[in-house]
Write a protein that binds this DNA or RNA. Structure first.
Lengths: 131, 131
DNA sequence: CCGAATCCGTAAAGATACTG
DNA sequence: CAGTATCTTTACGGATTCGG
């Protein structure tokens, strides 16, 4: 997931950019947000996530779960019962992150149509994908 | 850059997740943020960006520039002079996006060490990359 | 100075079958 | 139920070359 970046920028401008990317890298994957949002509502089990995120493969669910756990965004609790039971819970840090993401949600909603129009205009002016 | 997603989620929970991803996809690339931040300070030229972003290749600069322009985040102004001159300017929409990203910056700075520690702890408990 | 076009390596992501 | 292992496809990103 292209992490392991320590913000070794030369200019102050790019140092700021790097800090932003540092945050985005935590949720940069295709599925991280979906899992995080689902886990923000309370503890969720593996199969439960598999249904909720919908479209995710078993493999990607496992991988993303591991990464989120490794970053301290999810807590993994195993119940040693005979049908195995594992619960994933969002940590306070993850909940805080989600709050920060709400600002982005607002932006996306406000400019959703503007972006679509910009893309349509661009595609028409240049080589449009539709023809 | 894995865009073209229209948020066709079934559950309300995942619809919210999708809106967040919609915003993240605009800046999801490896270089988008760096370019956006540089352009937020005022109009910048191609070669200027090539130096500022530092590490970016000519190809990726061009590609990312095109995507940002297509999404309506950058305005491209060409001066038909004999040595060609092209200026890229952040649109109001892009500046607004950058403001929203500042919230994320705060989060990243607050939890930078916590994340590092979480990763170290995880790597030690499981198979550590360093041994 | 600003870019397009091509080739190529790596990493992300999907599908599926198998296991404790 | 909760994963792991393996295989294949796709997208991202780097290096290089060429053109206006």
């Amino acid at each position: 997931m292209s992490q392991g970046n320590s913000c070794v920028s030369v200019t102050a401008v790019q140092a700021r950019a790097c800090t932003v990317r540092e945050a985005l890298d935590r949720v940069g994957g295709k599925w991280s947000i979906g899992i995080l949002v689902a886990a923000s509502e309370g503890p969720v089990r593996f199969t439960e996530l598999e249904r909720q995120v919908e479209g995710i493969s078993r493999r990607m669910l496992t991988l993303t779960l591991r990464n989120l756990e490794r970053d301290g965004l999810l807590h993994r609790k195993v119940y040693p019962t005979v049908p195995p039971k594992v619960e994933y819970t969002a940590t306070p840090m993850a909940l805080e992150l989600y709050e920060s993401l709400v600002a982005l949600t607002g932006w996306a909603e406000r400019h959703r149509t503007a972006i679509s129009e910009a893309r349509a205009a661009y595609d028409q002016e240049h080589g449009a994908p539709t023809g």
